[in-house]
């Protein structure tokens, strides 16, 4: 098991952080912005809904970059490292390493320029606007990247069905919350259409378009009757491959 997949239910962590700010340092806005522009110019967007004319957007970025890329990176971190860093610190580490690994940026030039900005925090950025890219960023933010597809397999479960959650191999990335594995739930909604996740998660099972179900779980069925709060129900949206029939 990978700890990042099993955060739900972990005990002994102390009080929650009540910080209401979205960004706790100005620099965090910039890495959030870089990630979001990468998503807006990702090469896969010609197949996404809506079908963006991404090949015509003037950018040297020729990669698929989605939420799955960022999540896979975070889930691939050594778990104790994962907890050492703040949310956007992890983004900065993962995204800068991606650009180095893919050859867009040399590690040395990044280190050298970082030293430069360290010594001169107010030194300007290059002025090189890109109107067509900006328009694509705005289009992406306003129209998104839906995974809705035509279903290719029959619906396996109906509202009211008892289901068990599967226990697939631990892969690099999953959309199955670990605390639900092998637990018993009840289908409360069958979403219309099918959904294709951004990437295949391989042995984890997210391959191609799948039906998605909302499944309810009694807290006592997950944590044990004497270890859970009363009158508590947990709902999760689960891809078809993560569910098994009750018998």
């Amino acid at each position: 098991m990978k700890l990042q997949h099993y955060l739900g239910g972990l005990e002994g962590l102390g009080p929650v952080n009540l910080e209401k700010r979205v960004f706790v340092a100005e620099w965090e806005k910039r890495i959030f912005g870089i990630h979001t522009v990468m998503m807006a110019e990702s090469t896969h967007l010609d197949k996404a809904l809506p079908k963006y004319p991404i090949a015509h957007v003037p950018t040297t970025f020729k990669e698929t970059w989605t939420w799955a890329s960022l999540r896979t990176g975070a889930e691939g971190m050594q778990p104790f490292e994962y907890f050492k860093y703040r949310y956007y610190e992890k983004w900065l580490m993962g995204i800068s390493q991606f650009f180095v690994d893919r050859g867009y940026v040399a590690a040395e030039e990044l280190a050298t320029l970082t030293e430069h900005y360290r010594a001169n925090p107010d030194a300007p950025l290059p002025a090189q606007p890109n109107l067509a890219l900006k328009e694509q960023v705005v289009r992406y933010l306003n129209h998104g990247d839906s995974g809705l597809r035509a279903p290719i397999t029959p619906v396996r479960f109906a509202v009211g069905d008892t289901v068990y959650v599967a226990d697939p191999e631990a892969a690099d990335h999953t959309r199955l919350p670990g605390f639900l594995r092998n637990k018993k739930g009840t289908v409360t909604e069958v979403y219309p259409g099918a959904y294709e996740y951004f990437v295949s998660t391989g042995p984890d099972g997210l391959v191609g378009p799948q039906h998605v179900y909302c499944v309810s779980f009694e807290a006592s069925d997950i944590w044990g009757a004497d270890k859970s709060e009363p009158h508590t129900v947990i709902y999760a949206d689960l891809f078809d491959v993560y569910l098994k029939p009750a018998h």
Partner: peptide, 22 residues
């Protein structure tokens, strides 16, 4: 802060981002 600024500067220079994208 310095690292993200350096990254943004390099990505602008290399045509991955425009200076108005973020």
């Amino acid at each position: 802060a310095a690292k993200v600024r350096a990254l943004e500067a390099l990505l602008i220079k290399k045509g991955v981002l425009g200076s108005d994208s973020i």
